[in-house]
Structures are given as C-alpha cells and as structure tokens.
Write a protein that binds this DNA or RNA. Structure first.
Length: 489
RNA sequence: CGGGGUAUAGCGCAGUCCGGUUAGCGUGCCUGCUUUGGGAGCAGGAGGCCCCAGGUUCGAAUCCUGGUACCCCGACCA
C-alpha cells in the first residue's frame, strides 16, 4: 500500500493536507472555502473548548450568545472596523425563495428583498456593543465580562483547512470596564490565559507580544498576540487579545455614570482563538507517520491493540486494563476490530496521533509482559504487567512534557538575532527560516518595505523585549529594542 | 481580481487529441476461503445522469457553443 502521508521534506503543504485528510480531521465541503470538521477533528476542538471555557470561567467570565446576523449599518459605525472587514463580508439580501416559474428549481423571490441587508458576522463587536448600550448604565454594572462560542464568516480569497477557512468556529470575549487601566489589565490577562493554554495543553510554545500598528485588529488601540513557530519555519498567530479603548463605546454610545454621577464612556477589550489552533497543533508536533497529539488534548489517549487478534482471553485482559485506566481518568479505547490486521492497526494509531499504544500480545502475556509504544518518540518497550497502569499514567505526562520541550528546542534553534539586511535575507532564504530578532525604526513605511522585499512581517514586539540600542536593519535609524520578524501563515 | 489547471464509481486516476462494441484501472466496499507479532493473498460481486444546458452527427465521455463548480500560483488576509 502506498505511503499514507507525503513526507514533509518533499512538500510541506501537501503533508499538512494529507494529515488533515488521512487522520480524519476535516475535509473540504460542497461550499467553497468551508470545511466539514469530522468527528475525530471535532473531538480535539471539544477538548480545547472545554479547557478554555474552564479558564474563562475561572477568570470571571460568563458565556452568552448574540445573533449570527448584523444589520449593515452597525458595521459602519466604527470607521477603522469597517475598513478592515468590508472586503470579506457575506451579505444577506433576501429572506425567501420560490419555485422558478420558467422551469425547475428555486429562485430568490425578488419581492422578498430586505429593507436593510444583513451581514453574516465576521466578528461580533458591533452587535455586541449595540447590545451593551442597554446593559450598562452605572459603574455598578462594570466590569462586564462576557464570552461567546460561535461561528463567524470571512470571505477569504484563499483558504486552507483549519488555518484559514471562510467559516470558522471560535470564541470571542467582549468585556467592558470602567477604567483604561482595568481594560489593559484584562487584555494582558487574556493574552496570558491563551499563552498558558497553548503551552500547557497544546504543548505549543508561544511568544507573547504586541502587534505593530499595521497588523492591529481593525478598531483596536492595541493588539496583543501569541505567536508560535511552525515546523516549516513560518509563524502562526495563534490568538489575539485587543484593547479597544473607547472606540466602540463611542461608536455605540455606551456610557455609564461613575461614582461622582458623571457620564463616561466604557473601556473595552475583545479576544479570540479559533479552530485555527488545530492547524497549529498539527504543524507543531506531527511527523511523516501522521498526526502527533499532546495527551491533554487527544480524544483517545491510549489504544489497546490485541495481538495477533481479539480472543476471549485478550478481550478480558483489555477490559480489565481499560477499567483501571478509566478509573485514573485516562481516555482509553480497545481496537477489537477483527477485520483489520495488527500492522494496519499500528499504522492507523500512529496516523491518528494516539499518544500511547498498548500491544496486548498473546505470547507476551504468557510471560507476564505488555508492549508499550509511545507516539512521540516511537519507542517501544516490553514491561511487566504489574504496575502497567501507573506506568501509562506517568508516560502520558512525560509525553506531554517531551512534546513541549521538543517544540521549545526547535524554536530556539530557529530563532536568530541579525543586524544587517544581508543576514536577514540569508536567514529567510533557508529551508526553515524561523523567527528573526532585528532592530526596526518603528515606522510603518519601513515595515511595509521589508515586507515587499522579503515577504517577512513583524510578528510582534515581545512583551519581554529588553531595551537595547541598535540601528534599523533597513534604514539605519536608531532603535531601542528588537522586534520579531517572520514569514507567516 | 489576474494567471494556470481540473471536472469520468466513495476516494485517486486512465480514456478525450483522432467520435463507433458492454466506459476501464488502482484503492475502498460486500461475500467466501486461506492468512494473522508492522499497512495480507486468492476468488467472486455490487457500485456510473462520464459537471450542467444547448448544438453537430446515423452515433458524443470524446467535436462545437455557453454556463457552473472546485483546485493550484499570485495579489489580498485579527
């Protein structure tokens, strides 16, 4: 049988598509740019959702839900916002179909034209701020800490499964605060929540930083980001947290009475992560054998394979093991399909990225042994059956940690400090370019020129950037700190 | 939006240039037998509006006209 996955060396982009398709995560659909998320892929998203949702609740947020549709006029109330989204909006113009009088099928009923068109939300700031106007009247109503799990639509020119789809699933937090300080605190807090989630659950190290003006969210005063480095040396913006200042409050007249009974506009934030995270997860850990999942997010953490095939004795042993593992909180399943051969099951468990595989062998069992295979390093070992549950539970933690450590090491090996344009270009010409720390003169013109010359953009100014005197790699103008450049998804 | 490509079985493709039996191949699926410690073998079987609409022709997957959809490259893109 042919190789299931194109090797990364040969064609990284095809490798990515092969993983998504062959590991049964998602597929293209009948609708351009929109994907079908299959059960296994959605299982990963559910694990992500559950964890993030817990983290949002712990930081004081509540979930709510706002409409899919936004009146066209709302979108134009914040100038920068409409500027950013106008070119990628799906518009609803009619509300009824009818049978085609000339033949088969249905047509849009021209008599059912909407007075005002509705926009399918590309993001919900406008509809939410229009609602918040009624929710906020006093400082006692603040802070307002709301999150929404939803789908949004952005009519992108070109799409890629998970990384950029016309419709995607996400969460968007929208908060209102009495002071600018509180809003800034919230913005940074949620950036940290995202970073913690990425590192501790996805095992994906991220740089916490702030976007330059040209990369900022449309309508924000500042956009904070977490940036991850993918295996092909390109950056992925994995989550953003925006300080919206009073821009939306002013556009939607959201005012409150402060303690002195004076009217003030509220200060706002918004923050989101999307199904794009699954793309990041794939490109951080997976290999030429298939998907590699961190145990904390794997829908199945341990799979038991009977060798050479299921029988009463092996089934009983498997059930016993499963019960013990489940009691320890492990997500375990038993591959007792007798139509598939052992080798096929091994290959399939690797393709699907299941962190630990237990080979329950007839011969091994007679000797009191069990085979444990870990997905991350592909190591196999035969261990005594006593204490196997403890071993597996410990191994899951070890794999989680190893994936993170390996990803950190990769990022460090592909992070470069450069001081000249020649070095800068040389790094970008490498097969795996990575993050480039360089001085920049702080102007949008320079940023744009560098992008035109090299396709690299400023991913962020790291939160922990140390003050350092230097000269802009393009103009030679003075700079006080390094910023991170990279080619990006 | 510019350039290129594709549309034939669930999936991947050949056939189209040069019209002509019953439209093939691989894989997957179903049945049976033999296998079974790293993607099994053999045999039998099911599965097709050949993207859509018109046209040419005795005859169209194939030629002509028009349309639609998707993919790739670029531009665009929290």
């Amino acid at each position: 049988m042919a190789r299931a996955v194109t090797p990364r060396e040969e064609d990284y982009s095809q490798w990515y598509l092969d993983i998504v398709k062959n590991a049964n995560l998602a597929s293209n659909s009948a609708v351009r740019g929109c994907m079908v998320i299959k059960p296994y892929g959605f299982g990963i998203w559910e694990r992500m959702q559950r964890q993030l949702d817990d983290m949002f609740k712990e930081t004081g947020h509540q979930n709510a839900y706002f409409p899919l549709f936004i009146p066209k006029s709302f979108l134009s109330k914040e100038a920068a916002h409409i500027e950013g989204f106008a070119k990628e909006c799906a518009v609803v113009t009619h509300y009824r179909l009818k049978n085609d009088p000339n033949g088969e099928g249905v047509i849009v009923d021209p008599e059912a034209k909407l007075e005002e068109e509705l926009i399918v939300r590309p993001t919900s700031e406008t509809i939410i701020w229009n609602t918040y106007r009624d929710w906020v009247t006093s400082y006692r109503d603040l802070p307002l800490l709301i999150n929404q799990w939803a789908n949004v639509v952005r009519w992108e020119m070109r799409t890629r499964l998970f990384l950029r789809t016309a419709e995607f699933l996400w969460q968007e937090g929208h908060t209102a605060h009495a002071t600018a300080e509180e809003a800034q605190e919230e913005t940074l807090k949620m950036q940290e929540v995202y970073a913690t989630f990425a590192e501790e659950y996805m095992a994906m190290p991220v740089i916490r930083g702030v976007k330059t003006e040209s990369e900022r969210f449309a309508g924000a005063n500042n956009t904070y980001t977490i940036e991850a480095l993918m295996q092909d040396g390109k950056a992925l913006q994995a989550g953003t947290s925006h300080n919206l200042g009073q821009n939306f409050a002013k556009a939607f007249e959201v005012k409150f009475a402060n303690k002195d009974n004076k009217e003030e506009y509220v200060h706002a934030t918004s923050w989101g992560v999307s199904t794009r995270l699954i793309g990041g997860l794939i490109m951080t850990h997976s290999d030429d054998e298939g998907l590699v999942l961190p145990p904390k997010l794997a829908p199945i953490q341990v799979i038991i394979v009977p060798i050479p095939k299921p029988n009463d004795e092996l089934d009983a042993k498997a059930q016993e093991l499963m019960a013990e593992l489940k009691a320890r909180g492990v997500r375990v399943s038993y591959d007792n399909d007798d139509k598939k051969r052992t080798g096929f099951k091994f290959a399939e468990s690797e393709l699907k990225g299941i962190p630990v595989r237990i080979g329950l062998g007839k011969r091994d069992l007679e000797k009191g042994l069990i085979e444990i295979a870990r997905r991350d390093t592909k190591e196999k070992s035969s261990l005594p059956i006593e204490g196997i549950v403890d071993h597996v539970v410990g191994l899951l933690d070890e794999i989680q940690q190893n994936l993170f450590d390996t990803a950190v090491k990769f990022r460090e090996e592909h992070s470069h400090h450069v001081d000249t344009m020649e070095e800068f270009k040389a790094i970008l010409d490498r097969d795996i370019p990575g993050f480039i720390y360089a001085h920049w003169d702080g102007t949008a013109e320079t940023e744009k020129k560098i992008k035109e010359m090299t396709k690299a953009t400023i991913r962020c100014i790291p939160n922990d950037a140390k003050p350092e005197e230097g000269k802009c790699i393009l103009t030679g103008a003075p700079s006080s700190q390094r910023v991170i450049f990279a080619k990006a998804y």
